[in-house]
Nucleic acid binder design. Structure first.
Length: 305
RNA sequence: AGGGGCAUAGUUCAAGGGUAGAAUAGCGGUCUCCAAAACCGUUGAUGGGCGUUCGAAUCGCUCUGCCCCUG
């Protein structure tokens, strides 16, 4: 079996990824139970305790069935990043591997997963508030002004980056200006070594079936009280954590910009768009093995039947 | 039943008789720390028929469908 550790005692991280709504939660629990291990979530939104219904966290029963990590462990009021996740998740895995040969990791945040598997280069701390300042300058001076500044401080990035994307330009400037060295000079392009094997499995379903599951799940989430949850978070709608599919649309509804049924349709649509982006993101990672739920069960869960 | 209006991309809306555009969806992609974010590329349409004209989305007739008013 692919996940069995070999004689050298190296531990295995079994990564169960896939687009939103594909059915990762259920299968990850089956898998973890079979392996008598625990689940580490790699989801940039389920990590926030204030957002539960709208991020489709596992049910209380599911959470009780298998120990979960990084579900509701942080607050929307703190700034969280892929870099922090890399550090915290690595530390947790080190602990878990002391008592387990296998650990199951599941979630859908591509950048977080890459941060954990390959590492993110060590960028020095940036000047607090600089990013906000730069974003404001885009409004007042225009993106082109920042581009020209980037051309001076970091010509390498100016050549490589997507200069139409404000986030990218601001990020490169933020680092370059804070440190006084070009952003590009911190990029090593080297993957960090990890003291465990990583098996990447992505769950796959036909596009139509996936979209149908997404549409239905959004309706279920509404029945579970998503609207009330979102209403409670409305005062914090400008926090980065709440720049999230579903909450945004509900906030627009609260603002009277749409009707409730329009909001729900938009949530379904944008969740489908998100699923597509995830599939695109993983498309270039050739180490990922794509399987249908049935194939996964045959390969890893046959002993249960 | 009579009168009026409308008909353009999946949807919403443009185009003084002269190359049918946009937004959005759809499809595809980018990605080194706000990533459920941000950004890029692209398919696709004049309801049917007849006529006027060098030339019709645009003018006329007709059919079909939808909306409004009157009874």
């Amino acid at each position: 079996m692919p996940y069995r550790s070999d004689r050298c005692m190296k531990k295995n991280l079994i990564l169960l990824i896939g687009p939103t709504g594909v059915g990762k939660t259920d299968l990850s629990i089956e898998l973890a139970q079979q392996l008598a291990t625990e689940i580490v979530s790699c989801d940039s939104r389920q990590i926030y305790r204030e957002m539960r219904i709208g991020t489709a966290v596992p049910s209380p029963e599911q959470l009780a069935a298998v120990p979960h990590h990084f579900i509701g462990t942080h607050s929307i009021h703190e700034v969280y990043t892929a870099g922090k996740y890399e550090l915290e998740a690595l530390e947790l895995l080190e602990q878990l591997f002391r008592t387990h040969d296998q650990v199951v990791m599941t979630g859908g945040s591509g950048l977080y997963i890459d941060a954990l598997c390959k590492g993110i280069d060590d960028f020095p701390e940036v000047v607090p508030g600089l990013r906000e300042q730069l974003m404001q300058r885009i409004d007042t001076e225009g993106l082109e002004a920042l581009r020209q500044e980037l051309k001076l401080v970091d010509p390498e990035s100016y050549r490589q980056l997507d200069l139409k994307n404000p986030h990218r330009v601001v990020r490169a400037l933020e680092v370059s200006l804070s440190i006084g060295k070009p952003y590009s000079s911190f990029k090593t392009k080297e993957e960090k070594a990890r003291p465990f094997n990583i098996v990447k499995i992505a769950l796959q379903r036909p596009r139509e079936a996936l979209y149908d599951r997404i549409n239905r799940r959004v309706l279920q989430m509404m029945e579970q009280g998503w609207e009330a949850e979102a209403r409670g978070l409305y005062p914090f709608r400008h926090l980065p954590a709440l720049n999230t599919v579903g909450y945004k649309e509900l906030f627009d509804y609260f603002d009277g910009k749409t009707t409730l049924s329009e909001a729900v349709s938009l949530i379904q649509q944008h969740t489908r768009n998100y699923a597509k982006k995830q599939i695109s993101y993983w498309g270039r990672d050739k180490s990922i093995r794509w399987m249908s739920p049935d194939e996964l069960k045959k390969a890893y869960l046959c002993c249960l039947d």
